[in-house]
Design a protein around this nucleic acid. Sequence first.
DNA 1: ATTATATCATAGTGAAATAATATGATAAAG
DNA 2: CTTTATCATATTATTTCACTATGATATAAT
Lengths: 145, 145
Amino acid sequence: MKYSTRTRYGLRLLVYLGARYKGKFLKLNTIAESEKISIKYLEQIVRLLKPTGIISVARGAHGGYKLAVDPAEINLKQIFTILEGNIDPIECLQESFDCKKKVLCSTIEVWQGLQTVIDDYLEKNKLKDVVDNYKSKHSINMFYI
Amino acid sequence: MKYSTRTRYGLRLLVYLGARYKGKFLKLNTIAESEKISIKYLEQIVRLLKPTGIISVARGAHGGYKLAVDPAEINLKQIFTILEGNIDPIECLQESFDCKKKVLCSTIEVWQGLQTVIDDYLEKNKLKDVVDNYKSKHSINMFYI
DNA sequence: ATTATATCATAGTGAAATAATATGATAAAG
DNA sequence: CTTTATCATATTATTTCACTATGATATAAT
């Protein structure tokens, strides 16, 4: 029960972009160096995010990425769902999952309850909350950006 | 971010034993057939549980397992910790984890918060709660045990 | 004692996921 | 037309997962 580096890196990327929201396009290389993440791996993560419209892209020289939506308007559940794929704690909670033992299953309520508390937490927390935290911790450096 | 079958099977095993608490020793073969779990895999799971004292064992013919503690006195966090190993959503929440970027990390609060809501939920829920659910759903069959 | 039964313990194994890395194509700025 | 940066696919090493196999050990019943 661990979240993947894909989700952790992706979140850090979005926080980085969120802290520079409404600025210019930022190239991956800078972010990769700053966040100590492999640029090639970041490229893959970015490609997961792009189709959802959460980031906007400029190709070619002086290109890069920026956050396309207000950090206050996006919550962590949306982000995690994109990056992690599916955030249910076990498979059988998915709609499509057809289990013959569902009627007699006494543990499914445990998993549903767990899913609920996780979902609630992630929905309650906006990207802005994390961005604010980032800004307060990096306040000195922010003047140089 | 999925819980392993080890945890899911282990929970079902404990619920099964919990529903028959204070009865006689039950052999794994019966449980494996009833719960549709590979007996060899269940053996490994049971070996994780044994050293913690949560189950008691009788070896040899007419041997088996039974729950050693009152289901009302054990919560799901204790069970998950035994079965999952460590239930932190990411590595860096562990005491021993030494991260140079900890001071400037703006996402750790996200993970700590998530850990808190999960821990709270699992601590609040006792094995007895799941056992009661099991009993109500299997009431007809319980007369034959 | 011997046999049947059940747990104990270690080793192996196939499939899938993870976390990258490598190579090259494409698009845009200057 | 060169530089810069993203786009896309393929490959790879490592780890984890979910078993499976083999055999040893302990105990009850005969």
